[in-house]
Design a protein around this nucleic acid. Structure first.
Lengths: 347, 347
DNA sequence: ACCAACCACAAAAACGTTTTTGGAGGAGTT
DNA sequence: AACTCCTCCAAAAACGTTTTTGTGGTTGGT
């Protein structure tokens, strides 16, 4: 004997059948507007809260979405992705079941199976940095959208950052500030961001009449240590760059350290632009780091909304592959180059 | 007509009733070991996956836990907390429904109600930093445990970091390295960590025969800027401290900046210990920051396991209030003080 | 005045499990 | 031989909804 109020309690209180209550609340059926309003009012008064297990069982729509990610714990951006997804889900009265696989494919497929047992209506398959993936076949049976990931299975919608555009906006900002000798602290992993940002860097220079100079690109691991080393190398050149575009904020942090060691002050001796807008770094560096933000929140949002569209559609939609824009977040690490910068010799 | 295999398919294939299948799989009922094994084998062969909506509906155990947090997106630790909870949940074949309220009480109670509609078996009410909370009354009807939060409603179990111990382990480490003049970069918020860490700092000094010197405590906002200012103040003293304990890693990052401005090298002129073990800062600083880690993962784990215990118990358990230990993570920011440090005059 | 069409609602089936109740058969006891 | 007590399994009810089907009464057209 449950003391929670169920649909039959509402029906009894309203003097109608449960059918009518269900229709009144769901908006379905053919009811007079009067009854509909009356039933709704009574349901509200009784604080009726439908049991989603029961309604999901009958309607085979659980109103839940599975969110599977690879390493939610190791990246600080995970929260923004989840938040974007969760907020968008709330718009549709959906709830998110979050699961993490720590890069273990067996665990991952076990967890996806668990989600399927819970009858999730769809799955957001998220990576914590932009990468190519092959989908576990466990996912075959459920509508899926890829987040920060791309697959050869082109039939599945996906959303990623516009990496090329991220580089472009950074470089255009530096050019607008007057820089022409702009170095790039590149990473060395073979991931989409690597190639697209480098291409964006090169293309944008070219588009602005600046010849791409390979010797201004220093490659290293995408950490502060790597950034420090790579920046040091570039800054010790005879004609050092007046500005550096950095693969990410961590490398930019390394560049701050290298600049400090080289006796260069930011932004006057050296301008810097990072990528990530990782608040705790970009905001904590001194002076603040101007950086390109990745659309983590927006990707979460996009994935859920897309899932909604696919679930709503009667026939299957054409898949969509979105590249979301990466906005520039300005702080204090960019200034016009010094006139004598080209002649400047550090140390 | 669903083509998914249900319990009746298994029953048919095994030549038994659905009752028997249910018992065989759940471990309940009175079945011969032979039948039990046979049914299980057949279920496995057919890849039978129970519909948790149906089973939850009937048994009123949904195998889901609600995880409600305040600002999952603004702290980089959220991922570790969620991961700890999620991994522990997986141990019990539970799945986590994650919901975020962005500090909006209305939104929060709407979301908790959504979780209740989904019949969650329990709720983890998590904050992203250690604080006192008053529980929304929406939670009254469901087993709840508090994570990184404490409530006056003492009947509810909770888990928080041992803040006092965090300070103690840091100070003991510095004392062991030979420091006696140890400053503290304190924060200014009125939160439990503020008072407990300060107390831990003072008590540990006293316990080691070092008089607490209020003038060695510099208070400011708990950001890199704040840390920079506070550290600068302490370092410009006539008898500057040889080591600083910092409320968090961000303030420690500010201390690095202050040290650099003062021409002091870390760790030889100044030793530093932070709190948070925020990898992207502690590991990226140069040299690496020795810091006290907060047990984010472990708190997530503890909360779920505790919930499990409470749900398993026949009668209600006594609530438990855990303070988890905060381990020291050593990097390179601590060294013995220089002999002449006391005489050293910066700049 | 008759039939069709429609409106507003209700009855009942269905979703896929778990739980309760029942029952056939065999073993043990008197 | 009759009764009780196990053991092992099956039938059926139940969980709380949604969906399908049914129905009495009014409307409207002829």
């Amino acid at each position: 004997m449950s003391n929670r109020v169920g649909i039959r309690d509402v029906a009894a209180a309203a003097g109608v059948s449960v059918t009518t209550v269900s229709h009144a609340l769901s908006g379905g059926g053919a009811l007079s507007e009067g009854t509909r309003q009356r039933v709704r009012a009574i349901a509200r008064d009784l604080r009726y809260a439908p049991n989603r297990l029961a309604s999901g069982l009958r309607s085979s729509r659980s109103q839940t979405i599975g969110f599977v990610s690879d390493e939610i714990a190791t990246t600080p951006f995970a929260g923004r992705v989840v938040l974007g997804a969760q907020e968008a889900a709330a718009e549709f009265d959906w709830v998110l079941m979050v699961v993490n696989s720590n890069l273990d494919p067996d665990l991952e497929s076990r967890e996806i199976r668990a989600l399927l047992q819970h009858q999730v209506d769809g799955i957001v398959y998220a990576r914590m940095y932009h990468q190519k993936v092959v989908l576990p076949d466990t996912l075959a049976s459920v509508p899926t959208v890829l987040l920060d990931a791309e697959s050869d299975a082109v039939a599945i919608s996906s959303v990623v950052p516009d990496e090329w555009g991220a580089a472009r906006i950074a470089i255009e900002h530096l050019i607008a500030a007057g820089h022409r000798r702009i170095g790039y602290l590149a990473n060395e992993d073979d991931i989409p961001a690597t190639h697209s940002r480098l291409a964006g860097y090169r293309d944008t220079l070219n588009a602005n009449g600046i010849a791409f100079d390979e010797s201004l690109v220093a490659t290293s691991g995408s950490t502060a240590q790597g950034g420090r080393a790579a920046a040091s190398a570039l800054l010790s050149r005879r004609e050092r760059p007046t500005a550096l575009f950095c693969f990410n904020d961590q490398m930019a942090m390394g560049a701050y350290q290298a600049a400090s060691l080289a006796g260069l002050s930011i932004p006057h001796d050296l301008s810097l632009v990072g990528v990530d807008n990782f608040e705790l770094i970009a905001g904590a560096l001194f002076p603040g780091l101007t950086t390109v933000a990745l659309p983590h929140f927006e990707m979460g949002q996009w994935a859920i909304r897309r899932l909604r569209a696919e679930l709503d559609a009667d026939d299957t939609l054409q898949p969509e592959h979105a590249r979301l824009v990466c906005p520039l977040v300005q702080r204090e690490s960019v200034a016009p180059p010094r006139d004598d910068a080209s002649a400047g010799q550090p140390h």
